[in-house]
């Protein structure tokens, strides 16, 4: 048995992922886009902070049902791009269209409700809530129970709680976290926290799931499993935008890749094209092509 001790400790914390659990997006009656059509368009987005240009005329689009990779060296503007898409920053110029409509100055929660959900590069779970409750907060994005319904335990409250908890629990099972549903999220193992973040994002029923370096801090075996997981999320009917550092992971899992450098898009295409693109290699590795191999 290779690396026995390592595997053993891992086996204790890791649990089986039930990718067969049905977590397909719920039909909430919003506008939908046919498979393969443009889901989200980033249109000539520029973002300046004082004198610093964080994004410089970036344009690309994400098509329904694909896994799009967003890569680039540190400080290239990948997370900034996420932040613009999710309403954290307003672009200085240019705009984002989602499901055919401009995001405009929508609030962050409204964008989430519209169908864009994300995870965070540095895990930002609700530390003192249980795993299940964390996911429930995501599920609640589409709920409307208020004080009155809760106070009188009206049917709306009961219905939303029941279906909501079922959905949340399904998502935890999908991620292999059902045994840890009632652990406080801050007590979870690192990998579990990463997966819980994905579950929480999926709970908001997104048309587009944005993952910000989900494999950060993972060992190769864990990365492999994550790739599999991302693929099965896509197969359940989600569109995925993936920021990732690990070239192997990105190449293996994505359908298309957009490369940023210094806030500018320098390449876009299928993984194979990107792999051989000299500009990308130079930018990404900061060295000559031959050194890269």
């Amino acid at each position: 048995m290779p690396e026995p001790t390592m595997k053993q400790s891992e086996a204790e914390t890791d649990s089986v992922i039930h990718t067969e659990v049905d977590i397909t997006p719920l039909d909430l009656g919003g506008s939908t886009v046919p498979e393969g059509e443009k889901l989200l368009e980033v249109d000539d987005v520029t973002l300046r902070f004082g004198g610093v240009v964080a994004l410089d005329g970036v344009s690309f689009d994400i098509r329904k049902g694909e896994i799009l990779g967003l890569i680039g060296p540190n400080g290239a503007g990948k997370t900034t791009c996420f932040n613009v898409m999710t309403g954290v920053y307003q672009p200085t110029s240019g705009g984002i269209r989602f499901l055919g409509a401009a995001l405009g100055r929508r609030k962050k929660f409204a964008i989430t409700k519209l169908g864009i959900a994300r995870t965070f590069q540095n895990i930002r779970l609700f530390a003192n809530m249980t795993a299940l409750e964390n996911v429930m907060v995501g599920v609640d994005a589409h709920h409307s129970t208020g004080v009155i319904s809760a106070m009188f335990r009206l049917p709306k409250h009961r219905h939303e709680e029941n279906t909501g908890y079922r959905r949340a629990f399904d998502l935890l099972r999908f991620m292999g976290l059902e045994d840890k549903a009632n652990e406080l999220s801050r007590n979870l193992a690192y990998g579990d926290q990463r997966r819980l973040e994905i579950a929480r994002a999926l709970a908001t029923n997104p048309s587009l799931l944005c993952l910000d370096e989900p494999a950060a801090g993972f060992n190769p075996a864990e990365k492999l499993r994550l790739m599999e997981l991302i693929r099965s999320i896509r197969d359940q009917g989600y569109t995925v935008l993936l920021i990732e550092h690990d070239m192997r992971l990105v190449m293996g899992v994505t359908d298309r890749i957009v490369v940023l450098e210094f806030g500018r898009k320098i390449a876009e295409g299928a993984p194979a094209e990107i792999r051989d693109n000299p500009a990308v290699i130079a930018a990404y590795l900061g060295v000559d092509e031959e050194d890269a191999s």
Partner: peptide, 24 residues
Amino acid sequence: NSRVGRAWEATREDEDAAELMGVP
């Protein structure tokens, strides 16, 4: 013990993250 309570708690824990998870 309802959506309202969870939203309060999430907001207290991490306001930005809560907002990005759809909590107004």
